[in-house]
Design a protein around this nucleic acid. Structure first.
Lengths: 356, 356
DNA sequence: GCCAGTTCTGCAATCGTTTGCATCAATGTT
DNA sequence: AACATTGATGCAAACGATTGCAGAACTGGC
């Protein structure tokens, strides 16, 4: 069917081994035959069969990225980054969707090693630590976004404590004292870390932590909505809400719209993680960017390093943190009318239609 | 490193060939040895090496899905559907991102056949027809969402003419006579087809086509915004806008919000293709659902059929159309106060906050 | 012109499977 | 009891590459 090394060798009247050596450039062939063979190979349209090669070398030029889903915008950009990087190095990315489900993750993992992938970047569910640990002996693995505490795998994390801190501090600097927090489950790292960043910012500013302002849960939009309602129904509702979980954002926005609450005039809103439509929303929604792009790039860097280092890429570092970044748009407003009357960055919004 | 067939054979004191036959269940071994070998294989934790097997059989149990990007919500659900289906059949999905770029598509395609994929579902750019045609000789291929006119590949398409027709008719039935259309480039199939559906609905209803109401272009949100502005700035602006291109929706929504136009009171809005946040938007946005889920499922069906039929799965059918569906939410409103005063499905919105 | 040293090339084994063919034992037939 | 038939097994050759080892060809020094 397709042209094999044998065909090339025959056409060039040399042995297969010579052909192989010439084409892989081992430097063990004469300059002349090398050139002649590359030419002939090109003419014949020879493309090495990665399967055959893989059988012999134990490599596949396949690198897998295992994420929970593709609806999460962060995972999308990560996938695109990883794909682009790998492709440039002549690897194929195997994108797998694990659905944040232990069983599915486990199945996928075994299939992947069966296929002799050369490397793996995984967003672990945290429930297959033992398996990951075993696999790590055979394949370079880098964890992304989440840590699996049962392993000591190299892990690239977003700096959630810092991100939450940055966001909260921003709101405080705008004069907010009662800041609602809608955050993820406290049995996830990110849930805990984002809460801690929030708390730290409050403490530094000397603002007492008010537990009625903090809502944590396993988030889907519905939960985001109900948390948001609870916050707004408070006797003294917050002047700003920090939605530190992107799933919850949809629900919160909905409730805010339903109640005709004007952002940022009546309420400031800050979200964690970007979504492509946030900047097209009106008002454009300010966010804390978790740095998905940087995360993906760093993960690829680390993985490649491990893959090169053949078994011992252990630089001692176990954990990398990628800095978060505040992206100010129009959904947060300065409120302390008394002390600092200077107009905030965000525009006055709604009232007069901005002719464009 | 890992357990090979030889190990199993040795442990069972049979030859490798017997082991192979027993484990692949060719029926050429005695019941007893078959059971004994499966047991031993399980005990030893034997997992067949797909690479070695692939080398011999020419198969890889890899099926590729090549899409343009992952930001498009339709592609996301398609990817998830394809992955789920394939997985159930013990195939691994290779998800590739082609970026709607001819060169990248071409590169990816060659890498994929190099890896001896067993099948391919591709959203073609339309610029590598020749290549696709050649590859189709080696690998079963099904085109998805777009047709490549240079080939005669089996293609699963959304029924865009019907979808656009349905949407437009819906608006007409609600009493709208001036319906703005924001649609994709006319050199794409979907662009043309959606326009034609719109025109047909108009004609059927005896409404004259007004070219000032139709805007087509290569869409990014910015273009969507400018088209929307043009429509709203018309001396007699439309009472409804049909955004028949999902990229454009963001921009349109933005302009509408900027100008403080109330939906659906001042303007009805209908979009093509769903986005996860559409139903969380306030008002929830009515859409024409292109049936991404069904498309993906059908594409998988056809591909599997071809893969089974080994070379001749040609049933004569070249093109499959998956019906579109109207999903009424709250962004379209009945307007002919005179003839049919019955209140529309959509609620009155804005004015009084709906306590929830 | 011969020999040691260096390059280059080819033979053949190997990776882990599958599979055509031959062998062999067990069974049934006469 | 001899023979044909069936069913289970093993041997060995593939699949398409890589690679250790040995031999061939060339180089230069004497």
């Amino acid at each position: 069917m397709s042209v094999t090394l044998k065909d090339v060798a025959q056409a060039a009247r040399v042995s297969v081994s010579t052909a192989s050596r010439a084409l892989t450039g081992t430097g063990l062939t004469s300059e002349r035959t090398q050139q002649r063979l590359t030419r002939i190979a090109r003419e014949l349209g020879y493309r090495p069969n990665p399967i055959a090669r893989g059988l012999k070398t134990g490599q596949s030029r396949l690198v897998a990225l295992l994420v929970h889903n593709l609806t999460n915008a962060s995972f999308q950009v990560m996938a695109e980054v990883v794909q682009a990087r790998l492709k440039a190095l002549n690897y194929q990315m195997l994108l797998c969707i694990g659905g944040d489900d232990a069983q599915q993750e486990s199945d996928t993992l075994t299939t992947l090693v069966d296929h002799r992938i050369d490397g793996l970047i995984v967003v672990p569910t945290g429930k297959n630590g033992a398996q990951l640990k075993t696999l790590a002996k055979d394949v370079p693995i880098v964890c992304l976004v989440r840590r699996d505490d049962a392993t000591d795998l190299e892990t690239v994390l977003a700096d959630d404590p810092q991100g939450a801190y940055l966001g909260t501090r921003h709101l405080i600097e705008l004069g907010h004292k009662r800041i609602g927090l809608i955050v993820g489950r406290q049995d996830t790292t990110s849930g805990r870390e984002r809460l801690s960043g929030y708390v730290r910012a409050l403490r530094e500013a000397g603002i007492a932590k008010d537990d009625t302002l903090i809502h944590a849960g396993h988030f889907v939009p519905e939960t985001g909505a109900s948390c948001c309602r609870k916050l707004l129904d408070l006797p003294r509702p917050p002047s700003a809400i920090f939605v530190a979980n992107h799933e919850a954002t949809l629900g919160a926005l909905r409730v805010i719209a339903e109640r005709n609450i004007a952002i940022p005039d009546d309420l400031s809103l800050l979200c964690y993680e970007d979504m492509p439509w946030f900047e097209w929303h009106r008002p454009a929604i300010s966010i804390v960017d978790n740095g998905a792009r940087d995360l993906a790039n760093l993960a690829v860097d680390r993985l490649l390093h491990r893959m090169d280092a053949k078994g011992n890429g252990n630089d001692g570092v176990r954990e990398y943190r990628v800095g978060a970044r505040l992206v100010q748009r129009d959904s947060c407003r300065r409120i302390d009318a008394a002390s600092k009357p200077k107009s905030p960055k965000s525009k006055s919004s709604a009232a007069k239609p901005a002719k464009v």
